[in-house]
């Protein structure tokens, strides 16, 4: 049963990611990314990380993905199509430069060989850890404890980082941020 669930979620993840790779529509890519993220959350649950799974769904699906979709909407070319219902406006224009196919070959080659390398490492590395038995228990308590004790400094730091990033993003995205202001000095 557990095995079955694992394979289902793994398939969801990989297929979603693959669809992101092959689709030519940015909006579709965003939705396939959603599938992948959901699959990842399922994998988290299967490896006894329930809190992280919820966090994954809330942050990625609720936050990042919405952000991405906003980004897609804000950066489509307004002059490319007057028809709003036309789905073609989000299409990634097919490349007209020479060697587009060869770039796919190069990319697939690079990624494939990287995967091969990683696979080799995984097979060769005899993780002694993986032979130990694992139990399943909720990690919410432990995470709360750890965040307030051992990881309190990273916790606060990451809070400040997040705040700074949000302020920075707001500033950057606002139309007031003129890059020319810095050109004078």
């Amino acid at each position: 049963m557990l095995q079955l669930a694992f394979y289902a979620f793994a398939a969801l993840t990989i297929i979603g990611a693959f669809a992101v790779l092959v689709t030519r529509n940015v909006l579709y890519a965003a939705f396939f990314l959603l599938l992948t993220l959901l699959g990842t959350a399922g994998l988290f649950v299967l490896s006894s990380a329930d809190f992280l799974a919820i966090a994954q769904i809330m942050i990625y699906v609720g936050g990042v993905l919405v952000l991405v979709i906003f980004g897609v909407m804000l950066t489509h070319k307004p002059d490319s199509s007057t028809d709003v219902s036309n789905q073609q406006q989000n299409r990634i224009p097919s490349s007209n430069r020479r060697g587009a196919g060869s770039s796919w070959v190069v990319g697939a080659l690079v990624a494939g060989s990287l995967f091969a390398a990683l696979f080799m490492v995984l097979v060769r590395a005899n993780f002694r850890l993986l032979n130990q038995p694992v139990g399943w228990k909720s990690t919410v308590n432990t995470i709360g404890m750890q965040l307030m004790t051992e990881y309190v400094v990273p916790f606060e730091t990451v809070a400040i980082l997040l705040l700074a990033a949000l302020v920075g993003a707001t500033y950057l995205a606002s139309p007031l941020a003129k890059p020319t202001r810095y050109a004078t000095r």
């Binding site: 993840t13 995967f115 696979f119």
Partner: peptide
């Protein structure tokens, strides 16, 4: 699965 996902992301 992690390795595969990483390679797809890289691609």
């Amino acid at each position: 699965v992690g390795a595969a996902l990483f390679c797809i992301g890289l691609t």
